[in-house]
């Protein structure tokens, strides 16, 4: 049982120790160390900003576009880091799983928590950028942790499901790499969703039903500008129930992932 187990002290200690180790070792041996946790997403942002904002002139009419883009890239990085690390976790920690008995979900959660720590550091950078760019903080900034939690649950669900399959079929790692590439273009990170809406409203609606898109648009709404198109505002009142599709998908993914992971975890020690 995943939830009650968490309150067992030994499990919390192990989770903390493994997370600490993961975080400590992530940038081991690099000259800049933890600074990479900041530099990597910033560099990715810089590339996308130069290519899409400066050269291709995307997002011209969106206020505070650089911050708008930074929010997108930061949380996209979080999603990719979370899922790729989480999917690999069981296989990477095979030595432990074959030799000691502990709840297996701990290795998945601990490896994804590094991504959570990274995104929290990056949130500070976003706040600084936002203030420099002249955005006035509003109470909606406090909704960011809720949205982060939603995205984390979604990532964790994927990590549990694919991580469990990955034990037997390592192909998952490669398949997921490709999926990530495809998903990147299916989520309005570099292009404004309004651009899609002008050619096809239906396509824009479909894109916004994706929980990742919903979270990123909501984050932009909360942090950057109230002019952001969100799933909630874009899906019309006549399809009221559709507004809940992203959150239902998140709950579904997490339940499916945990259920499958739990079912398969008994055999991990033998199959790795």
């Amino acid at each position: 049982m995943a939830i009650p187990n968490f309150f067992y002290k030994g499990n919390r200690v192990l989770l903390r120790e493994l997370t600490k180790t993961d975080f400590k070792l992530r940038y081991q041996g690099s000259a800049l160390g933890y600074l990479w946790a900041l530099l990597r997403p910033l560099m990715m942002f810089a590339i996308l900003y130069i290519v899409f904002a400066k050269l291709l002139k995307f997002g011209g009419d969106i206020p505070h576009y650089p911050v708008y883009l930074l929010v997108g890239t930061t949380f996209w990085s979080f999603f990719t880091e979370c899922t790729s690390q989480g999917i690999q976790a069981i296989v990477n920690r095979g030595d432990l799983i074959r030799k000691v008995c502990f709840p297996k979900y701990i290795v998945v959660v601990s490896s994804t928590l590094t991504a959570v720590i990274n995104v929290l550091i990056n949130l500070i950078v976003i706040a600084v950028f936002a203030l420099i760019d002249g955005i006035t903080p509003t109470w909606t900034w406090f909704l960011v942790p809720v949205l982060l939690f939603e995205l984390y649950c979604f990532s964790l669900g994927i990590a549990f499901l694919l991580g469990a399959i990955n034990v037997k079929y390592r192909d998952i790692t490669s398949i997921w790499d490709v999926c990530i590439q495809a998903l990147f273009y299916a989520v309005p990170i570099i292009y404004p969703i309004a651009m899609v809406a002008t050619s096809s409203v239906a396509a824009a609606k479909v894109i916004l039903l994706n929980p990742i898109a919903q979270v990123i648009q909501d984050l932009r709404y909360c942090i950057v500008t109230k002019e952001t198109i969100t799933t909630w505002s874009f899906v019309g009142e006549e399809h009221f129930i559709w507004k809940f599709v992203p959150i239902i998908l998140v709950i579904f993914m997490l339940s499916l992932g945990s259920w499958y992971f739990r079912k398969k975890s008994k055999k991990f020690a033998e199959e790795i």
């Binding site: 002290k9 030994g10 200690v13 192990l14 903390r16 120790e17 493994l18 432990l96 000691v100 502990f102």
Partner: peptide, 10 residues
């Protein structure tokens, strides 16, 4: 300490 945590010790 890590080894201890793996064995279930706080």
């Amino acid at each position: 300490y890590l080894n201890g945590a793996l064995l279930g010790f706080s």
